[in-house]
Structure formats: structure tokens, C-alpha cells
């Protein structure tokens, strides 16, 4: 099998393994919520980046249906966002920003490695610091929406009524 596909499968296996081992049981739904919020943004930003020819995914899962790459942008990066959210320290804003930067740097490092050693991601008119900025925004917005979601537990009463 081709090297690129081995990488894709490896990403899925590692991702699922990370999800199973590093998600505390009581925070599973929180991670999933962050994952869901994040994927909506990566989906949209991906289409825009592709549309303006900034980035390309030469080898991908659905080559005739789309130019997007599903494995990283709809699985791996939203999953990282989920981990970022559930492990965020309850500290001052400055500490949280440092923590966010560290998470984004890890993500960008993975992205650079994939683009360097495989044909999965190719930067056209693009650079790693754009990835850094883009994901900083996406993670920060996801965090804001997430915090809003859990602002008050009284607000969840209506939801409980209709689903239980």
C-alpha cells in the first residue's frame, strides 16, 4: 500500500486510541461538543483556502467528490481541539493563552510534518504561520462557544425536558 494511505490509517488509529485512553469518562461529551463545533469551522475554512488556491491536498480519501482532506481536518484537528478544551487549566487569561499557543504549535508542527514528508497536504501560496493564525482563531472561537454552552446549568432544563 502506498505510503500516504498508511499515514492516513495511522492517524485514524492513533486518534481513536488517544480518544479512548485520554478522555475522562465524565468529560467525553464535552470533548465531543468541542469536536463538533471545531469541525464546522475547519470545513468552512478549508473550502475557502481551496477555493483561493492557497492549499492543496493531492492525495485524499474522496478524490472525485471533493478536494478536501477528511482525515486531518474533520478528524484529527477537531479531536485535538477537543483535548485542548477539556484539559484547559482554570487559570488567568494569560496562562490560558500560553496553553492555547502550545496546543496550536503542536498542531502546526504535525501539519508541517505531513506536508513535508507526504503528498497529503501541500502549501501553495501559504505558509505555516497562516495555519498557526487560522487555527488560533478557530480554537479560540470554539472555546468561546463552548464556554457559552456551559455558562449556567439552569439553562439546560429546557433541553432536558425535551430529550428525556
Amino acid at each position: 500500500m502506498e505510503f500516504n494511505y498508511i499515514i492516513l490509517i495511522t492517524i485514524w488509529i492513533i486518534g481513536v486510541a488517544l480518544f479512548i485512553t485520554f478522555t475522562p469518562k465524565h468529560k467525553k461529551r464535552r470533548l465531543i461538543l468541542a469536536f463538533l463545533i471545531c469541525q464546522a469551522f475547519t470545513w468552512l475554512s478549508d473550502l475557502l483556502l481551496l477555493n483561493f488556491n492557497l492549499i492543496a491536498f493531492p492525495v485524499r480519501e474522496f478524490p472525485s467528490a471533493t478536494d478536501m482532506l477528511v482525515t486531518t481536518d474533520y478528524f484529527l484537528y477537531p479531536l485535538l481541539c477537543g483535548f485542548y478544551i477539556i484539559y484547559e487549566p482554570e487559570q488567568r487569561l494569560f496562562v490560558r493563552f500560553i496553553y492555547l499557543s502550545a496546543c496550536i504549535s503542536t498542531l502546526v508542527f504535525i501539519d508541517i510534518m505531513i506536508s513535508k514528508f507526504t503528498d497529503l497536504i501541500e502549501y501553495l501560496n501559504y505558509d505555516w504561520y497562516w495555519t498557526w493564525l487560522l487555527f488560533l482563531c478557530i480554537f479560540a472561537i470554539t472555546n468561546i462557544i463552548y464556554q457559552w454552552f456551559f455558562r449556567s446549568k439552569l439553562l439546560l432544563e429546557a433541553e432536558k425536558r425535551i430529550t428525556q
Binding site: 465524565h26 468529560k27 461529551r29 464535552r30 446549568k153 439546560l156 430529550t163 428525556q164
Partner: peptide, 8 residues
Amino acid sequence: FFRDISKN
């Protein structure tokens, strides 16, 4: 999703 989220 909502069954346990409020409990948690």
C-alpha cells in the same frame, strides 16, 4: 448527549 451532560 443531554442525559448526562447536566449531571456532569
